[in-house]
Each structure stands twice: as C-alpha cells, then as structure tokens.
Computed example of a mutant assay.
Amino acid sequence: MLRRPLLAAALAAAALPRSGHAQPADFPSHAVSMVVAFPPGGQGDVVARPVAAGLERLWKQPVPVVNRAGASGEIGYASIARAAGDGYALLMGLSSLAVIPEAARLFGRQPAYEIDQFAPVALFTADPTFLAVPAAAPWRTLEEFIADARARPGAISYSSSGNYGALHLPMAMLTTAAKLDLLHVPFQGGGPALTALLSGQVQAMTSGPGPITPHLKSGALRVLASWGAKRIPGFEQVPTLQERGFDGIEYYIWAGVFAPATTPAPLREALRRAMAAASRDPEVQRALAAGGNALDYRDGAAFEAFFREDTARLVKAVQRIGRIE
C-alpha cells in the first residue's frame, strides 16, 4: 500500500521540468548582462549603470552594461527579443522600444522584433523630454525658437538617436504640430547626439533630464520647453508644450528593465524582486538623483499597464506622423 504513493510521487517528480529556469533560488550563478541599445552617455546608459551596480551588490555577481548600438536601437532591442529566457540577458529599454516595429511597418519592412517578445520587469525612470539648445543660442523662449524656425525653413538643425527613436519622435511630434521645417541629423544614440549639440554641430535636441543636467548646471545649455503634462520639480521655470497651446503633445523618455518573453514566471518574479531591492538601494537612488533622474519605480502589473498604455499612445503618434525619409 505504501509503494503506490511513493511510486506516484517519483513519477510526478520525474515529470517536473529539469531546466534551471524554474529554479530562481539558484539564480544567478554567473554574470548577468544588461544591454543598452545605444552608445554610452544617453538616457538608457545613465540609468542602466547605477541599477547594474546595485544588482551586483545584491547578487554578488558581475552585471556588465553592454552598449549594443545601431539602427535607432533596433539591433540591441532585437538581440534581447531573441535571447534565451534564462535571466542572464536583460534589457534596459527606452520608450523607443514600442515605436520601432511600427516604424518598420510604415516602410513595408518586416520588424526585427515585436513587443510581445519582451516581458516587462521594472520601470526605473519616466521623465518628460526637454527641448535643449546651447546657452549662446539666440532663442530664450519656445516662441522665439518657433518663430525663427518658420522664418528660416530647414536652417535650424537638431540631433537625435535615430529615426523614430526616443529623441526623434518627440521633435517630430512638435514639428508636425507646429508645421516646422527643421534639419534632422540622426546619430547612433543620445550620447553622440548630445556631443553634437555641445560642439555646435547642431542647434537643438530633445533629451531626458539625466544627460543634460550637468550641462544645464555648467551653463552650457538651456531648455525652452518640456513635453510633460505638467511642470516637474527642478524645472519649474520650464513651460510645457501644452501650456503653449500644443494640446496633446506629450512624450516621456522612460527607462525600464525587460527580459525575453520566454522567461518562466518564477524567474520573472525573482528578477522583479531583485529590481525592487535595487530601487531601494541608497547608492542607486543617489546616483540616479545626481544624474538628474527622478526614480519612478514600478513593477509587476503596474509596469505592464504603463507599458501597454504608452505603447498604444506612441504607436498612434507614429501613424499620425507617417513616413519620414
């Protein structure tokens, strides 16, 4: 009589998956890569590095930040979409993650990845973009910038992280709404785009607060407007585009951690708990604040809902703007 339950238990145990994926208690046993789909110096990079350092302290394993740039972020994003769902390859994704597949379809091209190939794990920052110009530029207000752009079509250039990227789409939204003709100069990421602005190669760019904050403090740059729904702490003097009559023009450059969608639920939960712990790490909080990034932590269902809603809004914006050659 005793042998039957023992036999049933043995058969049940044999039927359990042998993959280490289902055993998050053993995770991680070696280095975990965090991919940023852009060169160093941009928003994804300045958020990924303190978060990775916090995870290293928590996991006692290396968490190298891997800058895999190219094609407006498409190359780095696609690398995680195709990665094994074992937790050892993560993505610090930006808002452009949701845009690139839709932009590919506009041009009749097969997207390199689809949104459902990613599992949202945790959001760390979600800041509105700002219109930044050199402090020596003649424009001190948004109205002056727009008036000059209308008077000199194609004369004012701006840099971005690539077509339909996180720094291009907000400017495209503005130029479409304001009927402006600006010269778009795309780079491989926010870091090179910012370097171009600081060196005088271009006259404007959009950016999250993190990368430009040191240059605002040094007096090298000024900001003329934000894409937020309301003014934000630390930038109370900066008007929003909506205040200036551009209703519905709203854009946030957010940074969040994603895993491949094939990652098993128990491992996703282990990753979520680790990200929550990293968000509470005082060193992570200090590093983000020093870089001008306000921690806006969300995970689980809250981040998934945010990602779905923002994706829907950005896809509509891309469709409204249409093809940009």
Rank of each mutant, 00 (worst) to 15 (best):
S72I: 09
L2F: 11
A103F: 07
F187D: 06
F130N: 04
P153F: 12
P111Q: 08
I212S: 02
A81V: 05
E236Q: 12
R150T: 05
P211M: 06
A53D: 07
G191Y: 08
A305Y: 05
Y164W: 12
R4H: 08
V185R: 14
L267T: 08
R323Q: 15
V284M: 08
L174H: 09
V185F: 00
L58C: 11
A178L: 03
R152C: 02
T129I: 00
L55M: 08
A132G: 08
V315T: 14
E250K: 13
E102F: 07
V63L: 09
F303H: 15
L6N: 03
Y252D: 09
F118S: 11
A265I: 08
V315Q: 15
G234K: 05
Y252K: 12
S72V: 12
A14T: 12
P134K: 10
A9L: 15
A204F: 06
I212C: 00
G165Y: 09
R105V: 08
A122W: 03
G76V: 03
R222Y: 05
E283R: 14
A10I: 13
G165H: 08
A9V: 11
Q61S: 05
L11K: 09
V99A: 09
E309K: 14
V32N: 05
P5V: 03
A149C: 06
E283L: 14
W59Q: 10
L142C: 09
L183R: 15
M34Q: 07
N163M: 10
M173A: 08
G300A: 13
P62G: 10
A289R: 14
Q188P: 00
Y164I: 06
R244M: 07
V318F: 10
E143Y: 02
A289T: 14
G208K: 01
A301Q: 10
H215E: 00
